[in-house]
Lab assay of single mutants.
Amino acid sequence: ASVAVIAAGTQGNIFATSALRSMRFLQILRMVRMDRRGGTWKLLGSVVYAHSKELITAWYIGFLVLIFASFLVYLAEKDANSDFSSYADSLWWGTITLTTIGYGDKTPHTWLGRVLAAGFALLGISFFALPAGILGSGFALKVQEQHRQKHFEKRRMPAANLIQAAWRLYSTDMSRAYLTATWYYYDSILPSFRELALLFEHVQRARNGGLRPLEVRRAPVPDGAPSRYPPVATCHRPGSTSFCPGESSRMGIKDRIRMGSSQRRTGPSKQHLAPPTMPTSPSSEQVGEATSPTKVQKSWSFNDRTRFRASLRLKPRTSAEDAPSEEVAEEKSYQCELTVDDIMPAVKTVIRSIRILKFLVAKRKFKETLRPYDVKDVIEQYSAGHLDMLGRIKSLQTRVDQIVGRGPGDRKAREKGDKGPSDAEVVDEISMMGRVVKVEKQVQSIEHKLDLLLGFYSRCLRSGTSASLGAVQVPLFDPDITSDYHSPVDHEDISVSAQTLSISRSVSTNMD
């Protein structure tokens, strides 16, 4: 405001104040949320940038038409019409005319000016109207692209899951042992070998009828009888010197917790746990005396209480009078009846079946994303299906024409109403129809010849004498029936064969 007042002088105070007050009108834009329509302006900018070359070309040609039209109309009207006294007036008329506004304040009066105005109007309006069409088509394409992008975003994750499931299904095939990355992934998420051994031990116990592997080994086996189970490696608790092959000598807290839970599941009659010990102070733990958990001091820290809870689970003690015997301790020893080589084939089979199920689920979810969402998608899918159906029908028609023997030239002739090819031409065609016709002709010829021969033979049998045999009239074959199959017997006289037959029969009768 200060700059405006200084620039306008003393009389500019009122002007500056009114100008600043008129800017209050811009507050109405906040009512229509114009300040939060950044996406709309961004869309407009992207459309203009995408079609910038077309817009520049249309505007450039339109500007050239405007300059030439205004100049030529000015030359034609400057002497006869006072409205075109300057080139600026003519340029104003050209702008209003070519933009199809047409105020009518300035019009050419001479015939030359009117002809020039009409010609440049028809030429220039087309170029001035091009930017509107370019922007409209650009907006339509952009909206369609955003629509497809939205659908693509919805299909991206199911497609990625389907590709991942397909690759993992491919890589978990037993015949592709060189693909090891997927197996490394499952090695990292699978439970430890100790848990798998416990699982298979329970399965084997159920197969043995509820007997433990130790009891199965204690059962008497006759001499020479084959053992029911192959000899396997035996594993004891981590306190002993022997372990399962492939295990580490260090046992983690999870393994100890699972070991304690498995020992508690063996039965309360074979294992008696004394009350857990509780320390009397955060600094020292008295293991010899058993106290109640309700006497825990409230001033303990979080670490002390955590250690106390761990001691409740991981440090059970047995009383002296209830101490288990050596046999019970041997039964409680952890027996590992299986090795990694025995378990891994079954584990890989389970993983393979899981990968198949996940692949089928991913495939079903991806197919669900291909379903249409709204009416536009339904129409688009219907149009695509219609085009596909037309293509299939056209391909089927082409194959039928190839089989029947109607080529493209014959199809055009039928469409024009011309006469089709004759039967002889159809026979000569190298097509399925021509071959079928040729075979039918040959079969008819053979059938006719057989009928003639059978009739001749029956007449010979009825006559009974050589004289009557020679008097029999043998009809000749019709050459038209034989089609294109020409037998060497067709052109010979059958009477010669009949005479030869009669001579042979007379000779045979004389010999008798």
Rank of each mutant, 00 (worst) to 15 (best):
P276A: 10
V507G: 02
S249G: 11
Y184D: 10
F193S: 11
R218L: 07
V287E: 11
E368Q: 11
L179V: 11
E337Q: 11
L198I: 11
A290T: 15
D255V: 12
A219P: 13
G464V: 04
T241P: 08
D512G: 08
Y457H: 12
A181T: 06
S311A: 04
A177D: 11
Q271R: 04
T482A: 07
N303K: 09
D493V: 05
S248R: 15
P324L: 03
D341G: 14
P282A: 11
D377V: 01
M278L: 10
M278I: 14
A225T: 09
V232D: 10
R352C: 05
S333G: 06
K363Q: 06
K358Q: 08
A424V: 14
I354M: 12
G405V: 02
E326G: 04
P231R: 08
D451V: 07
V287G: 04
I257M: 13
L501V: 10
G260R: 14
T369K: 12
P275S: 15
L453V: 09
M174I: 07
D484G: 05
S248I: 11
G470V: 10
K358E: 13
E492K: 06
I494V: 12
Y178F: 05
D223Y: 14
L198P: 07
D451N: 07
R371G: 14
R265Q: 07
K348R: 09
A467G: 09
L476M: 08
S445P: 06
A471V: 06
S301C: 13
P220T: 14
E415A: 14
L190H: 11
T339K: 09
E440Q: 14
P268H: 09
T398P: 05
R256S: 13
G420R: 03
V400E: 02
L450Q: 10
E201D: 10
E285D: 03
S497C: 11
D423N: 11
D418E: 06
T234P: 06
R505S: 15
P279R: 14
A290D: 13
I403M: 08
R194G: 12
I446M: 11
Q397L: 15
G385V: 13
D490A: 14
R212W: 07
R305S: 15
P191L: 12
A471S: 08
D423A: 14
D418N: 01
E321A: 09
I403T: 13
D451E: 08
L169M: 13
P479T: 04
E415V: 12
S292R: 08
L314H: 13
S487G: 08
M259V: 04
S311T: 04
P220A: 05
D478E: 05
D451A: 11
S299G: 08
P276Q: 04
Q263R: 08
I481N: 03
G288S: 05
K394Q: 01
D451Y: 04
G391A: 09
V474M: 08
Y186F: 03
V232F: 14
L469P: 04
R168P: 01
S463F: 13
N208Y: 13
K365T: 12
S261T: 04
L196M: 06
D493A: 06
G391V: 09
G409A: 05
M389T: 13
T266A: 09
A219G: 07
L357F: 07
S248G: 15
Y373D: 02
G455V: 13
L190V: 10
P268A: 05
D484E: 09
F359Y: 07
A166S: 13
M344R: 12
D187A: 09
V361M: 09
S283T: 07
G252S: 12
S431G: 09
E326D: 11
W300C: 06
L196R: 09
K298R: 09
I503T: 06
E492V: 14
L214P: 14
R364K: 06
F359S: 02
S188I: 06
D173N: 08
S395N: 08
K295T: 14
T369A: 09
P245L: 10
E195D: 10
L199S: 06
T294N: 15
D374V: 01
Q473L: 00
A346S: 09
K295Q: 15
L387P: 08
K295N: 15
V340E: 11
S261R: 10
R207C: 09
D255E: 14
T241I: 12
T509P: 08
L476Q: 10
L179P: 03
A181P: 09
S506W: 04
K298N: 11
K315N: 13
P238R: 14
K376N: 10
R250P: 14
A424P: 06
K270M: 12
T339P: 14
R411G: 07
A498V: 05
G434E: 06
E326Q: 03
W183R: 09
S502T: 07
Q381H: 03
T398A: 11
N303T: 11
Y457F: 11
S506L: 09
Q402R: 08
K419R: 05
N510H: 15
E447K: 14
I494T: 08
A310P: 05
T291P: 08
N208D: 13
V496G: 08
E215Q: 08
R411T: 06
R309W: 11
A197T: 07
V436A: 06
V216L: 14
L454W: 02
L273M: 10
S249R: 14
S325L: 09
T277P: 06
K394R: 03
L476P: 13
V350F: 15
L450V: 11
D374G: 01
L450R: 02
T465I: 07
K441N: 10
L469R: 07
E327A: 07
A424S: 06
V375M: 15
T266K: 15
Y382C: 13
G391S: 12
F302S: 14
P245R: 06
G252D: 04
P479S: 04
D401H: 15
D341N: 10
D304V: 13
T500K: 08
N208I: 09
D342V: 09
D341A: 15
D401A: 12
